[in-house]
Structure formats: C-alpha cells, structure tokens
C-alpha cells in the first residue's frame, strides 16, 4: 500500500476513523492521506461507508474515534476548513424554485463572496457546468443531467481547494456523465484535491490517481489503479473461441471448456499472435486484462456489480 508521502503536500490526513450507527460499524478504522492536487477514489459497493466517510471528513458527522486533519486544521467544522472545502452530495441539494444563477449566487454569498468577485465566480461556474445559456431559468425546468452538473458547480463556486464528490454521476445519462468527467478533468488540471466516491470501477480507473477499495467500512487495499491490479487483479488471460473442436489438444495451453480456450499469460500479445497463426479456425480471440472488478472479487469474494 503506497501512501501519499511522495506528493508535495498532504491536504487531508485521516487516522483510525471510526463511526457506528447503533450496533453497526459503518466506518471501521480508516486511515489514508490525500496529497494536494491528487484525485483519490473511494471505490466500494452501496453501504460500504463511502458517504459516511465523506460526511465525517467535512464535519457533518462526528467520528466515534480517530482524527481528521485538513491542511493544518484538525477540526473540519471550523469555518476556515469549510471555506476550503466543497461538497457535491450524492443527492441533489439545490433549490428548485431558484434559477441556476440564483442557486450559485446564494451558495457563493454564504461563503463570503460578493460584488464583482461573486458575479465572476457565478459566470465561471455556469460556464464550467455548461449552463450559461440556462442561467436564468428555474432549476425545475432543468434535465436530471443539468441539475447534476449544477450540483457539482455549486460545490465549486467559492473556489475550494478540496472537492468532495459523492457519486457525482449517479443516475445521469451517458452524455451528462461524459460532461462531468470533462469537468473533473478540468479540476485535476487546476490541481484541486479531489475525493471521489463511486461504485463504478470504470469511473475510479478513469478519474482517480489512487483508489481505496472500501468494503464494510474498511479499506481492503489502497494504491494506484495499476498497482491494485498488479497486486490483486491476477494475470492477463487470452480467450479464444474455436469454430470447431480442435484436434491436437496437447499443443494448446490451458484448458478447453466446450469450444472456449482460456489461459493466463504474462506475454498475452505474443501468445495471442501465436494462437492466431497456428492454423486453428477461430471465431474470436481476446486478451482480457484484469480490472478493478477482478481486484474487488479477489479481495472480497464478491462481485462489485452484484451489490
């Protein structure tokens, strides 16, 4: 497990964080760090403790044990900490009877923005969310994806240094999801520190510099996506489908199941090329690399998608 020590400055430090609801331990001894400018993912199924962790980090919940430090502050409820944080909650948290611009201006004012600075930030946030042309329309006229983008923009209007994104793509169409990914890419370019929770492994792999696999309130593994796959994902597989049953089975690597041949390979391209040139009639030939799904399966014995 690689910590963020190599990064320039640690922005968030979490040690031994615990939180229980009644007898259920929701967060069970989490420890991790986020470096400045890093995008850190919490990947886990529903109920793994992702949202609770975010609420603990931003001070909406008090931990039963453990400590959280944001910058040099150890109390996330302090106004100085809150000013440097922005949260885009999983559920939309906006006023339907206000326009997009009014929503942004309202939240901006709460963080102390005013005058020209406020107007500039509202304009930036609207442009960021791709909503400049809908700025003066009531939120209830927006599509689900547009509302989701505004939800993200409201977390950014006050220029926070740390952004907490709690499943920001939940329930949005593919087009809006891509727009949100583009937004996050812009935030990464701007060197914002991002904590990103998701139960979509593709998103974690696409967005995050490092990922913590979370299950039942515990971090099972934490590393870069490549590091996690290398450690827990297992080997790359070559999978071939034969048109008819091959005759010389002894020459084939791996086991044949029906007409499907599957074998692990450390040189998948070489092995796949060799199989293609061997003269067998193949209907398909694939190289299957392990992903975070395999990592989760290896760590928990369950599939992430089954949750």
């Amino acid at each position: 497990m690689r910590a963020a020590d190599s990064w320039e400055v640690q922005m968030i430090r979490v040690r031994g964080l615990r939180k229980a609801y009644a007898s259920r331990q929701v967060v069970d001894g989490l420890s991790f760090e986020l470096a400045q400018g890093e995008t850190f993912g919490l990947l886990g199924p529903n109920g793994a403790g992702k949202t609770t962790t975010i609420h603990l980090l931003c001070g909406l919940l008090r931990p039963d044990a453990g400590c959280i430090a944001v910058g040099h502050e150890e109390d996330p409820t302090r106004p100085a900490v809150r000013r440097c944080m922005g949260l885009a909650p999983q559920a939309l948290a906006l006023y339907e009877e206000l326009t997009g611009a009014e929503n942004l201006a309202f939240f901006g004012k709460l963080y102390g923005l005013s005058g020209a600075k406020l107007r500039a930030r509202v304009a930036w946030a609207l442009d960021f969310a791709g909503l400049s042309d809908r700025a003066d329309q009531l939120l209830r006229t927006y599509s689900g994806g547009m509302q989701r983008r505004l939800n993200l923009a409201c977390a950014l209007v006050h220029e926070p240094a740390v952004v907490l994104l709690d499943e920001p793509t939940a329930g949005v169409d593919p087009q809006s999801r891509n727009h949100i990914f583009e937004c996050i890419a812009r935030l990464k370019q701007a060197h914002l520190t991002i904590l990103y929770t998701t139960h979509y492994m593709e998103e974690a792999a696409r967005v995050c510099d490092r990922v913590a696999i979370l299950d039942q309130g515990r971090i099972l593994a934490l590393d870069t996506v490549d590091g996690l796959i290398a450690q827990h994902g297992g080997p790359t597989e070559v999978v071939a489908e034969f048109a008819c049953a091959p005759k010389d089975l002894a020459k084939l690597p791996g086991k044949l199941e029906g007409l499907t041949l599957r074998f692990a390979s450390t040189q998948p391209h070489v092995d796949a090329a060799r199989l293609a040139q061997s003269g067998y009639a193949l209907t398909s030939l694939q190289i299957r690399r392990p992903d975070l799904e395999h990592v989760f399966l290896a760590l928990t014995g369950r599939r992430l998608r089954d949750e």
């Binding site: 948290a93 006023y95 939240f107």
Partner: peptide
C-alpha cells in the same frame, strides 16, 4: 428533505 440543509450546514455558518 431536499438536502439543502446539509449544504447550509457545510457552509461556514
């Protein structure tokens, strides 16, 4: 119920 209170509680207030 619309979670905006959560957002208000997150502000420096």
């Amino acid at each position: 119920t619309t979670r905006t209170l959560q957002r208000l509680r997150l502000a420096p207030l």
